[in-house]
Write a protein that binds this DNA or RNA. Structure first.
Lengths: 64, 64
DNA sequence: ACCTCATGTAAAGGGTGTTTTACATGAGGT
DNA sequence: ACCTCATGTAAAACACCCTTTACATGAGGT
């Protein structure tokens, strides 16, 4: 599962720490998601999409 | 997180076991999702939405 | 009464998502 | 040289997702 979190975050002008705070997760979680270490839970995926005013499919793309 | 899995499955005319097979998960997983015992992983949420030809937001609705 | 099918549930176990604490590196500004 | 900020990473701990195996219930058909 790929994602555009880093790109969206940089467009917004936020650090990983700032994004983490807005999502109520740790900075390490944001870093891990951007680096593709694992996928977020579904509720976190919704929070990310809502924060960036995108649909989930616009932020996350399945490998297949 | 609420979802419309049961409704979509019934419209498709499938049993929980049939849906599970199409999703490559166990029947217990389908049952647990329909009954709201937990949320699916993000990849499974994508598979469900794609199977029913819906957007993720049309299948899953955050509580907030 | 029996059989089958669909559904609900439970327990144990492996794998994944997220946290806290902590340390390391590089870039920029003083 | 120093300080600060942003980023990357690691280990331990905990909760959650999903599996297999198993049993229980109710509805419908014979």
């Amino acid at each position: 599962m790929k994602n555009n979190i880093q790109e969206l975050r940089q467009i917004a002008g936020w650090s990983q720490a700032e994004l983490a705070k807005r999502l109520n997760v740790s900075r390490q979680t944001v870093n891990a998601l951007e680096r593709g270490r694992y996928d977020p839970s579904l509720p976190l995926a919704f929070a990310i999409a809502q924060l960036f005013e995108r649909q989930i499919e616009q932020v996350f793309q399945p490998d297949t």
